[in-house]
């Protein structure tokens, strides 16, 4: 199986098909559309926003996304509505609005 040599020893090729265990691959939505968990929806006031990007930095889900001009928007499909973005915003440009409920 040795295919070459490095300073630390022979280079070994990875065996193909060695592991029979099921392997998961990173993909969005491993727990479904998590946007349905949300009670409150973050709404960004673009006039107040100063583009400090703190919401983008602190969002645990990565559902706050950056545009080319560093303005942010929300991926409502997966946002869980934790409200961290609203609590770290220094100019209160994000408001948590109650969801109306899906079955109206």
């Amino acid at each position: 199986m040795s295919v070459g040599k490095s300073a630390r020893g022979p280079i070994v090729e990875a065996p193909v098909g060695f592991f029979a265990a099921p392997v998961s691959h990173p993909a969005p939505g491993a727990a479904g559309k998590t946007g349905t968990w949300r009670d409150y929806r973050p709404v960004i006031n673009e006039e107040k926003c100063v583009k400090c990007l703190l919401c983008w930095l602190y969002c645990p889900e990565d559902t706050i996304l950056r545009r080319e001009d560093d303005m942010v928007y929300v991926d409502y499909e997966y946002c869980k509505g934790c409200g961290i973005c609203a609590s770290v915003c220094p100019v209160n440009a994000i408001e948590m609005v109650p969801e109306r409920g899906g079955l109206e």
Partner: peptide, 12 residues
């Protein structure tokens, strides 16, 4: 996008 949205973590 660094994270992976739609995971099973609790909010926050």
């Amino acid at each position: 996008r660094y994270g992976m949205p739609g995971n099973a973590a609790c909010p926050g």
